[in-house]
Amino acid sequence: MSDSGTLEEAYERLHRTGPEFDGWLSNHGPMAVEAMVRHGYDRDVHRWLDGYVARLDELPRGASPVGGGEWREALGDARRLGDWLAFFDGELRERPWRDVLETWWPRLLPGIAAGATHGVIRTGHAVHALLGFEDETRLAELGQALGYWAARWQPVAAAGPPSGTADPGRALDGVPRVPDQSKGINHRLDQLAEVAGWGPAVAALRPAADAEQARARLAELADAATLRYLTHAHGNPVMLVHAATAPTAVLRTLPALPQDLWAGSLDAAWAAGAAVTAAYAPAEPVARQDLPAGAGPAEEVFELAVRHGDEHVIKLADTALDVHRRTGDPDALAAVARAATLISPFAS
Rank of each mutant, 00 (worst) to 15 (best):
R325H: 12
G5A: 07
E303Y: 11
L130S: 03
G82I: 03
T253N: 02
L189W: 15
P161M: 03
L92D: 07
V238K: 07
M31G: 07
E194H: 15
G164L: 08
D22N: 14
R152E: 15
A126R: 04
D83L: 08
D190T: 10
A244K: 03
F88L: 05
R217D: 12
T123M: 10
A35H: 05
A274E: 02
L101R: 00
E212P: 09
E34G: 13
G160E: 14
K315D: 12
F87T: 12
L205M: 00
T6E: 13
D99N: 09
L142F: 06
M239P: 10
D318V: 05
D42P: 11
A283Q: 14
M31R: 07
G68H: 14
G76E: 09
P297G: 15
M36Q: 04
M36C: 06
T103S: 14
V286I: 11
R252S: 10
R152T: 14
G147I: 08
G29P: 02
A166L: 14
H28K: 01
P247S: 07
L266C: 04
L251N: 01
R338W: 04
P297V: 11
F302I: 00
L333N: 06
W104M: 00
A63N: 12
R93V: 01
S64R: 15
P19I: 10
P179I: 04
A157Y: 09
A140K: 10
A244Y: 09
R228Y: 03
A275Q: 01
A293N: 11
A293L: 14
E284W: 09
H39N: 11
P60G: 06
T226A: 02
E102V: 13
A114F: 11
H15G: 15
Y148M: 10
P168Y: 00
H28Q: 08
A337N: 13
A287L: 13
P168H: 01
S2Y: 05
E8T: 10
A233K: 04
T165C: 05
A275E: 02
P285V: 03
D267L: 03
L109I: 12
A171N: 07
H324K: 03
A295I: 03
F21P: 05
R177T: 10
A268E: 08
D89N: 12
G5V: 02
R206H: 11
V175P: 01
A35T: 10
R98A: 10
R325K: 13
T6Y: 05
V241Y: 04
G294L: 01
A54E: 13
H308I: 03
D57C: 09
L49Q: 01
A209Y: 09
P162Q: 09
M36F: 04
L257F: 01
G197A: 06
V178Y: 09
A140W: 08
R72M: 13
G115F: 06
R93Y: 05
P292I: 07
V241P: 04
A140Y: 01
S163I: 08
W105L: 06
A243T: 12
L85G: 12
S344D: 13
L130Y: 03
V195R: 09
E212K: 15
A140T: 12
P345V: 04
D180R: 10
H324F: 13
D267C: 09
R152V: 02
D57Y: 06
G68V: 11
A243L: 03
A10M: 01
G197N: 08
W24C: 12
A340W: 07
A320T: 05
